[in-house]
């Protein structure tokens, strides 16, 4: 009888807090309940970015524009790296805009815990709302930059350059989602580890830069000797960038197998990230 009473009471508790337990203590449904918060974080980050600047959202355009120009001069004119016969500006811009989205997602989510310690230390809400909102904010930035790319695309198209969109364009949303997942997954994985070992913060900074050079952003896959190409299959970003370029410009090395492999890696990294993050969020306040 007594046992029955206790069981009845057990069921009435709406929340039970205990020591951190298994590895799979993940509550993604909480994220949905806090969707308003995600929206407000996005708004905050977006508005705060250009508050008290003269050019405002224009800054989102200037950054890829100038990088493209610099790349065109250094890698195109001076180093004379081939661009698969594509107009150099377009070739670099496609790479930069795509890469930037991934790099921003990774960079900004990777210090979620450390830079939000003051909020996280005071109130509970699903911690994943923060990195998810970062990925969405970056999506807005990407959209703006992407419009710039399309404008250049139209300009070169009308000028009669040899570029063409392929049906692969339809894959763009999926590729974006994959980059978001990859950036987020890796970012929160690193962020979970930086709570204890701050060394990783420094690694991320230049690691992302080095990674860009290991990815066909400033050079095409076709300029890589055949015997080394397998190495790029291990880089999930390589296939994505090449696919985007092929989709919009009609030249480049499209490798469905690499793309599938990249997708597989993304899923694994994202899952690892979410699991580690959920485990860390319960105790990171003690170490941060």
């Amino acid at each position: 009888m007594k046992i029955g009473d206790e069981m009845l009471e057990q069921e009435q508790w709406t929340k039970v807090i205990g020591p951190r337990s298994g590895w799979f203590d993940v509550h993604l449904s909480d994220l949905w309940h806090f969707r308003d918060l995600i929206g407000l974080f996005v708004k905050r980050d977006f508005v705060a970015f250009y508050q008290q600047t003269i050019l405002g959202p224009l800054w989102f355009l200037l950054q890829p524009l100038f990088t493209t120009i610099v790349f065109t001069i250094i890698f195109g004119r001076i180093a004379r790296i081939p661009t698969d016969g594509l107009p150099r500006m377009l070739f670099y811009m496609a790479g930069i805009v795509t890469w930037n989205y991934f790099a921003d997602c990774l960079n900004k989510t990777s210090d979620t815990f450390v830079s939000n310690a003051s909020i996280f230390g005071k109130v509970f809400f699903p911690r994943l709302t923060v990195p998810v909102s970062i990925v969405i904010t970056n999506l807005i930035t990407f959209a703006i930059q992407f419009v710039l790319f399309l404008a250049f695309w139209a300009f070169f198209y009308l000028k009669g350059s040899d570029i063409r969109m392929t049906p692969w364009v339809l894959l763009t949303p999926a590729l974006l989602l994959q980059m978001a997942a990859l950036g987020l997954g890796l970012g929160i994985l690193i962020s979970s580890m930086t709570t204890k070992y701050r060394d990783l913060r420094f690694v991320v900074g230049f690691g992302v830069q080095l990674w860009m050079y290991a990815t066909p952003v400033v050079y095409p896959m076709s300029s890589i000797p055949e015997k080394w190409q397998w190495l790029f299959a291990l880089n999930p970003m390589a296939a994505i960038i090449e696919t985007v370029r092929y989709a919009f410009l009609g030249a480049g090395a499209l490798r469905p197998f690499h793309l599938a492999l990249s997708l597989g890696m993304t899923v694994v990294i994202l899952l690892a990230g979410i699991i580690t993050f959920s485990r860390m969020e319960k105790t990171f306040m003690d170490t941060v």
Binding site: K15, I17, V123
Partner: peptide
Amino acid sequence: KILSEVTAPTKGTVKMKGRVASLLEVGT
């Protein structure tokens, strides 16, 4: 902090009924 789920206990449990709001700081 444990009651408001900011950090987890090392041992032991807390059971609660209903919606919890914690105000450890104003203007978080």
